[in-house]
């Protein structure tokens, strides 16, 4: 997937959970990505974060770092 698309999709998820009260948006972002993103997509995200993760929201970066 094109990096800008991955960044947008990740940030869109974080943008929703950021608005939710009483939860940790990074944890919820992680759960959502784990539930719905195929392993190749998650790997691409991990690789991208390992390279600095430019353009990704902090919650997405935090979520990615929590990935097993």
């Amino acid at each position: 997937m094109a990096p800008d698309k991955m960044i947008r999709m990740g940030n869109q998820i974080a943008a929703f959970f950021r608005t939710q009260p009483g939860i940790d948006p990074a944890v919820k972002t992680l759960e959502h990505i784990t539930d719905f993103w195929e392993p190749r997509m998650r790997q691409q995200l991990r690789d991208y974060v390992a390279d600095g993760g430019a353009g990704l929201d902090p919650e997405v970066i935090a979520a990615t770092k929590m990935m097993a």
Binding site: M1, A2, K5, D35, F36, W37, E38, P39, R40, M41
Partner: peptide, 18 residues
């Protein structure tokens, strides 16, 4: 046990060669 690719993801992965 892992989720598979959704249609847009299939097309992305196809362009990517996987």
């Amino acid at each position: 046990p892992e989720p598979g690719l959704r249609i847009p993801n299939m097309l992305d992965a196809a362009v990517h060669g996987t």
